[in-house]
Write a protein that binds this DNA or RNA. Structure first.
Length: 171
DNA sequence: AACACGATTTCG
DNA sequence: GAAATCGTGTTT
């Protein structure tokens, strides 16, 4: 029986957590009681109010509020009117950071994967440390990975748009 | 009250 | 290459 990641894991800096999530298992319990596990293959880091690509860079709002709270909670938001993005907040209260889930072995793309695993706004602020319907378990694996620039954030300008804060597990 | 836009995906 | 589609933040 594998133990899920606890609060301390999520309270680390996002640049520690984002790559560490690669190769770990995302566990889902659906409303009908069935469970599924997905291997995390791609993540992206958004780091604080300084990071012009991070939603927290424009200050706290109703939407991004959870990012300013304690690590381990989900930050969900709708993009382009049709895709839910799933992020997990990192660091302790007052430090707004989050990891965007960009890919699972079974699905590539942040919009596709939320559709696959069935999460939306009703998971906003869900706590991965205590939830009975979604959490992450360590697999013991520490896969090699590649770091690349983040996607779709050119508007953030230098140096943010070019920082290698997108992490992809090697095959 | 109105408007502009986005951490994307899909189709032609 | 461009449309789809709407909640959120900002401006009027």
């Amino acid at each position: 029986m594998t133990e899920r990641f606890g609060r301390d894991f999520y309270r680390q800096d996002v640049l520690e957590v984002a790559p560490a999530l690669l190769g770990q298992q995302l566990v889902r319990i659906l409303p009908d009681g069935t469970s599924s596990a997905y291997l995390i293959t791609e993540t992206e880091a958004y780091r604080g109010e300084e990071d012009r690509a991070c939603h927290a860079s424009k200050g706290r709002t109703l939407r991004n509020g959870v990012m300013f709270g304690d690590g381990g909670h989900l930050y969900m938001y709708l993009i382009y009117g049709m895709y839910w993005m799933m992020n997990v907040v990192t660091e302790k209260e007052g430090i707004p950071q989050a990891v965007l889930f960009r890919g699972l072995r079974e699905a590539g793309g942040p919009g596709r994967l939320t559709r696959l695993i069935g999460v939306d706004k009703t998971y906003y602020a869900e706590d991965l440390v205590t939830s009975d319907r979604i959490w992450i378990e360590p697999t013991g694996r520490k896969p090699a990975y590649i770091a690349a620039p983040r996607v779709g954030i050119d508007y953030a300008g230098d140096p943010w748009k070019d920082l290698p804060w997108r992490f992809l597990m090697k095959l």
